[in-house]
Amino acid sequence: MELPTQTFRVTRADLVRYAGASGDFNPIHWSDRTATKVGLPGVIAHGMFTMALVGRAVTTWAGAPDAVVDFGVRFTRPVVVPDTDEGTEIEVSAVVKEVTEDGLTRLDVTATCLGEKVLSQARATVRTPR
């Protein structure tokens, strides 16, 4: 079963806010000068910010903020966030792989930016909604 795709807009302001809230002030997430110096096309989103957005999608699908029992991702491609009002967009979709008898639902999640997958092996296990 496929779950409805959720779309998240990401701007530079979001990255600055996430840096402050998470304490991750690595300059590749706010300084083009630093990002390009280490070979990136420009400022990229924190991997954990992308994972947090996927977490929002998962809890929305689960219908409960506290339903996630296991959640893992591999970061495969950076999410480049241009310094524009629009920023960029991350699309998150999922398929239900399994519903177990002990009340758990396993999801395989896909996250893309500009049509390219930014995560692999993204999986979540949630308590099956009643």
């Binding site: 991997g47 903020p65 996630v68 029992v69 296991d70 893992g72 991702v73 970061f75």
Partner: peptide, 11 residues
Amino acid sequence: HGDQRFAYTRP
């Protein structure tokens, strides 16, 4: 950062 996973006993 390559991979990240959490297994929760509770939130």
